[in-house]
Design a binder for these strands. Structure first.
Length: 415
DNA sequence: TCTCCACAGGAAATTGGGGGTT
DNA sequence: AACCCCCAATTTCCTGTGGAGA
């Protein structure tokens, strides 16, 4: 392997080759075709088509969990539509694309859209909602005749959906007399539709398309297409792709997750200087990614969430789990007192505990013991105790408590 | 079948902080 | 300085409920 230049001895000089084009596996890679979503693409096309006939495109809602190709699908079709618009004088098109992530209300979303259209400056604020909407209309008037507004993660707008009511009716209400406007909403939350107010459903719902989770076969095809470009021929063992697909399908059916898994498995093989990617690398990759997901979630907890988690961890180290809300709350109070932080009411701590349950840090099981216990929750730690303590100890606000817990856990032989 | 425990969890009101105008 | 808007987090108040035991 040493060609005499000495480079082969450099620690960066891997002796094995795994990837042909690694960029294909990156998050921002956009596939050119989506054979698994042909039906959905056609539906999108049918909904956008009216724009080419001089009226507004249908309003459209895309539903489906993350990694189902919703965003890719809409981008793909909008690109085609823009291409069409560029080649004809029948359609003057403006597309405004925004993510409602962090824009938790109509007010914020309107402000964000204004900023998006202006292309610079900061978000307007400090005015009342209708003035904000009026400001938005002013900006929209400056755009082309046909306007399509894409709002990704539209579910984060919650129940404050006034803007979604206003926008589709802007022409009818005289706010925008010379424009055709339509809204495309993309949502990960399948229940979002049910929480919308009736008037919004009425004005916004022309059509909706559901992106069902990919099954293992579809994921396999998706991975095969990527792998063909990404990896050198023959480095993937036969069962690697099906296994990645199976893991992802078992979970959320997310293509993104499946691709991450494959990428990670490839990296592991490479880092170990192995010539081929094997099944064991996939399993290792899954464990690493799963752990990373938990760690990231745990690091981004709010202070009060941390206290709630810490309370359960404390009970866990004392081997007193599963514990009902009341016990957790007692522990919570002592922890908060010790840290001299403000103490929340039990009702609120219960919400925090449940949110931790939904994020997968706790097991929250409801039970009913009739006359000797009634209806109640029982909480216990779902994640690995040692790893959890390690992550929590990184936070200086609570590390003194965590250190004590580590001692107790060690004494009890739990870690 | 009826009671009744020990909570769960919905709804409304309050708080406090960020950003603004006049 | 005085006052206005928006909003997430929290508190307050309350009604609802599954099943063990009579």
């Amino acid at each position: 392997m040493d060609d005499g230049t000495g480079i082969a001895n450099n620690p960066y000089g891997s002796t094995v080759e795994i990837f042909a084009d690694e960029s294909v596996l990156k998050e921002d890679w956009q596939p050119k075709e989506l054979p698994e979503r042909e039906d959905e693409l056609e539906e999108i096309r049918n909904s956008l088509a009216p724009a080419t006939r001089g009226v507004n495109a249908h309003n459209l809602f895309l539903y489906g969990k993350t990694g189902q190709g919703k965003t890719v699908a809409i981008d793909h079709e909008l690109d085609l539509l823009k291409e069409f618009a560029a080649g004809t004088d029948k359609l003057e098109l403006s597309v405004v694309k925004t993510s409602a992530n962090n824009q938790s209300t109509s007010y914020q979303l309107a402000a964000h859209l204004i900023k998006e259209i202006r292309g610079s400056g900061k978000k307007p604020s400090g005015i009342d909602q209708q003035s904000m909407f009026d400001l938005l209309y002013d900006e929209l008037r400056g755009l082309n005749e046909t306007i399509i507004i894409v709002v990704d993660e539209i579910d984060s707008i919650g129940s404050n959906d006034d803007l979604l009511y206003e926008l589709p009716r802007a022409r009818k209400n005289g706010h925008l007399e010379n424009h055709w406007i339509s809204v495309i909403g993309i949502s990960n939350d399948l229940e979002f539709r049910d929480n919308l107010s009736p008037k919004v459903k009425d004005s916004l719902y022309d059509s909706e398309i559901e992106f069902a989770p990919y099954n293992a076969n579809q994921l396999t095809s998706i991975l095969e297409r990527r792998a063909e470009r990404a990896f050198i021929d023959g480095v993937l063992a036969d069962d690697v792709i099906p296994l990645c697909a199976a893991f992802a399908a078992q979970d959320e059916g997310s293509a993104r997750q499946a691709i991450r898994l494959l990428y990670k498995a490839g990296e592991i093989a490479l880092n170990n200087e192995q010539e081929a990617v094997e099944e064991s690398h996939v399993r290792e990759a899954r464990d690493i990614l799963e752990r990373k997901r938990i760690e990231e979630g745990m690091r981004s907890l709010t202070t009060q969430d941390q206290f709630a988690l810490l309370s359960v961890v404390a009970l866990e180290t004392a081997e007193e789990t599963p514990a009902r809300t009341r016990q957790v709350y007692q522990k919570y109070k002592s922890i908060v007192t010790r840290l001299d932080s403000n103490q929340l009411v039990e009702r609120r701590v219960r919400d925090h505990l449940q949110s931790l349950g939904m994020q997968g840090f706790l097991i929250a099981e409801t039970r009913n013991r009739g006359i000797q216990g009634g209806n109640h929750y029982r909480f216990e730690l779902k994640t690995d105790l040692e790893a959890t303590l390690e992550i929590l100890s990184e936070d200086s606000r609570i590390d003194e408590v965590v250190e004590d817990l580590v001692d107790i856990a060690t004494a009890n032989g739990l870690i």
